[in-house]
């Protein structure tokens, strides 16, 4: 009982460092739309130029903060670990969520790669159990690591008979 008092440590592994670049790029792309909308509005609307400029500056400051801080922060909080018995993930900035699933209860192990993620050599791994409340998602894994993880988990999941409900 003494040991449990000390608490649950975070999962051991960080995701790939390349994910920072990917997240930055994606966040940038996401901010382009409101920025473009604002610029178009400014060009359409002749008067009140100072208001428009102020709004634009504000958006840019917010965008810069998001693009710089978010990927770093996310890189630090998104963690994962897999042992022969269990998969363990952590995600979330303000609302932290840690998920643990025994490998014997794993039903499917998927890996997905979007076009941009392929460019960065990244992959996402989703581990599902029979419960709709418990999929474990690991975003931004290195492609090789993801492949190894999927292989390990599928082997482990096959070892147990029954339908894992």
């Amino acid at each position: 009982m003494q040991s449990t008092e000390a608490g649950l440590r975070p999962p051991r592994h960080l995701v790939s460092r390349k994910a920072i670049g990917y997240w930055t790029l994606r966040a940038l792309a996401g901010w382009l739309i409101p920025l473009a909308a604002q610029v178009i509005w400014m060009l359409q609307d002749e008067g009140r130029l100072s208001w428009h400029v102020a709004g634009l500056v504000l958006t840019m400051v917010l965008a810069a903060a998001h693009v710089v801080i978010m990927p770093q922060w996310r890189f630090r909080v998104h963690r994962w670990e897999a042992t022969p018995e269990a998969v363990y993930t952590q995600s979330g900035w303000f609302n932290q969520e840690r998920r643990i699933a025994p490998v014997s209860r794993v039903q499917t192990v998927d890996s997905q790669r979007g076009p941009l993620e392929q460019l960065f050599g990244l992959a996402n791994v989703t581990v599902t159990t029979a419960s709709a409340a418990g999929p474990l998602k690991i975003h931004g894994l290195d492609h090789q690591t993801a492949r190894r993880l999927v292989d390990e988990l599928t082997e482990g999941a096959h070892g147990d008979p029954g339908d894992a409900t």
């Binding site: 649950l8 303000f94 609302n95 932290q96 969520e97 840690r98 998920r99 643990i100 699933a101 025994p102 209860r105 159990t129 029979a130 419960s131 409340a133 418990g134 474990l136 894992a164 409900t165």
Partner: peptide
């Protein structure tokens, strides 16, 4: 036997 995993949720205020 019916438990197939744990989610441990901690919001900022809960932490």
């Amino acid at each position: 036997d019916g438990i197939i995993g744990w989610n441990l949720r901690r919001s900022f205020f809960q932490r």
